[in-house]
Design a protein around this nucleic acid. Structure first.
Lengths: 200, 200
DNA sequence: AAATAATTCGACTATAAAGTCAATCTATTG
DNA sequence: CAATAGATTGACTTTATAGTCGAATTATTT
């Protein structure tokens, strides 16, 4: 190694961030299944084979975990928005790509939108609401584009978007991984229904 | 009065139930805006001009309030189901009536579906989940009828219903009474979008 | 207006769960 | 194989809030 000591330092750091991510992901699943306030730090710790105190080596507070859970999903959604930008020939086309990507994130990829924004305080809440607003605006932009190019029927764009986002958010409540329907099935069905619902 | 004493006894009883309902309704709004766990009994009491202790004259526990909030909505939804039964000429027609009625309940009538089923324990939770399942089954029945009579396009009925119920549930998060859009506007938009989305 | 019943409250207890910390264990490095 | 840094813990404190209770207040009846 040209830079002695670096490789181990990196491993340490990498393991730390990996374990931190594991905490967030594990908590995210528990929050989705049982709700934020019905999930204790002790339970999160146990499900990772740790003590509660060890958890605080990786996170500053329970609220921070919730915050990171939200951010994790919104990062993935932002990436999806970016990846479909300009890919569709029409607004409807692009909306289909994005909506399908969202549905995949929330089923196949094991991510889950959490409703519990109210439990975040101050800057945490503001940031999360901003991120959600940003996603909604991206979708609205595509919907409006579709209305301009004639692929999507005229309607109140905001209501249309809320309608569609609502269907996605409800996934958390009823979708169970490994159930009768795969993430693909659901994504396909959602895209089909969304598509027909907004088409001109 | 042929039954002396009854009229006052009735007033007492009526006032008690009226006040109890006020507790439930007030709490329902607070739960929707701030979340169940972020709403303390003290706050519910204050918003009614009562002390916390007085609250316990009307309800047995905070959990009971949450339970009643759920039941209140499901009662109204059951009534809606009943009122449209057999009214539509086709499945799609009936679904439009029901979906519009649901949207009205959740906007104009100030009712709100709560997501926090996880905070209910034992029999409370079981009952609420049963009621929700019952509503979903009613909607599914209508959707399937529509698929039979050719008014609704073939698809997985359960996913279709979850999609539609999700949009309704999300209303709690973004709908604000007295905002830019009236309950009517939203109900109309929702029915239109739902309708086109599922039509054959 | 005395007696009774309904309603409300202040001041308390109980409890669950978040968060802290000094001590300990484990891995890494020179 | 010390010595140092990283990781984990048991036992503790703190805090928020649900829930209780006897006393006080208000309304109703005779």
């Amino acid at each position: 190694m040209t830079n002695p000591g670096t490789e181990h330092a990196f491993n340490r750091e990498a393991q730390y961030t990996a374990k931190r991510r594991a905490v967030i992901r594990s908590a995210s699943g528990a929050f989705r299944r049982r709700g934020y306030h019905n999930t204790s730090m002790v339970l999160i710790a146990q499900s990772l084979g740790l003590s509660k105190a060890a958890l605080y080596y990786y996170v500053k507070s329970k609220e921070e975990i919730l915050y990171e859970c939200h951010i994790m999903v919104y990062d993935a959604m932002d990436a999806a928005v970016k990846s479909v930008r300009g890919k569709g020939t029409t607004g409807l086309d692009e909306l289909q790509l994005l909506y399908g990507a969202f549905a995949h994130l929330l089923t196949r990829d094991g991510l889950g939108l959490l409703a519990d924004v109210d439990s975040l305080k101050g800057a945490f809440q503001i940031t999360v609401l901003k991120r959600r607003g940003s996603i909604e605006r991206s979708v609205t932009r595509i919907v409006k584009q579709g209305m301009s190019d004639g692929s999507i029927k005229q309607a109140d764009a905001r209501v249309t978007v809320f309608f569609l986002m609502g269907a996605l958010n409800w996934l958390n409540v009823w979708y169970e991984p490994g159930g009768r329907l795969s993430g693909e099935d659901i994504a396909d069905a959602f895209v089909a229904q969304m598509s027909q619902g907004v088409a001109a």
